[in-house]
Design a protein around this nucleic acid. Structure first.
Ligand code: MN
Ligand code: MN
Ligand code: ZN
Ligand code: ZN
Lengths: 125, 125
DNA sequence: CTCTTATTGATATAGAATATCAATAAGGAA
DNA sequence: TTCCTTATTGATATTCTATATCAATAAGAG
């Protein structure tokens, strides 16, 4: 099935880029409703998924959190402020070598890992 | 509010210990129903939360997954097999020094971090 | 044993994300 | 441009996980 370009898809992509890099689907929906009130919530959820599958945005999964979407697609980590709830980028080199440490011992075929940080952001201190 | 000992609480704790270390609330519920059919689902969810707050079991949060409960309370990592979906313990030393790397640059008060691995387990290869 | 109240369990509720499906519109072909 | 196929939309229903509500029950201190 060939993908088609729609006004909705473009609005959604632009909203993700505008909304501080880590918006939820609901936040994207609310943002777009301002300029395009007729958009459906299902369309937003659907396209956010499609856009992340196509690599145009990055889907961020947090434990016990609703999914978020990042316009920065390169590999990087995130930290959640436990006070204000905001998600920030972590400016840190990628941790390497983690894969080998467990492959040896148990015979896992290792695919990926994810690190999630928690703390208090400078603004909330 | 002083905590009381109940049959249900004990059944739930024992079920967690019996069920391969990483059971979901639904799995614990199904397991207990065999011997104690009258137990309520809310009671299972409630006590799993209480037990983890009291440090008797450990609550494991996976992104986009239902919560799981581990009778091993010491700090360790987990890997999820992307084929069978099972969660395994990762036999690896704790990664240290991650906290300092980000504190310096952005002024975060660092509280915790979580690493989640994904791969294919030996059985599924 | 008695009494206070923590706990139970049936049920309702909340929240996130996907499924359904008739109506619409993107975009290739003529 | 016009026609046609079908991907996409948007209203709505559904699924799934977890928590909230609340009358009835029972733990356990006195
Ligand atoms: Mn980011
Ligand atoms: Mn474990
Ligand atoms: Zn903050
Ligand atoms: Zn497996």
């Amino acid at each position: 099935m060939k993908r088609r370009n729609t006004i909705q898809k473009e609005l959604i992509l632009n909203a993700v880029k505008r909304l501080h890099s880590h918006a939820t689907a609901e936040e994207v929906y609310a943002e777009i409703q301002k300029e395009y009130p007729s958009i459906g919530k299902a369309t937003v959820y659907r396209n956010l998924k499609l856009l992340s599958e196509d690599g145009q945005i990055k889907r961020i999964e947090f434990p016990c959190e609703s999914e978020r979407f990042d316009d920065t697609c390169s590999d990087h980590y995130h930290i959640k402020c436990e006070k204000c709830g905001k998600i920030f980028d972590v400016d840190m080199d990628l941790v390497s070598g983690l894969t080998d440490k467990i492959k040896d011992k148990h015979g896992f075929t290792f695919n990926s890992y994810q690190i999630v940080f928690k703390g208090i952001c400078p603004n909330c201190q």
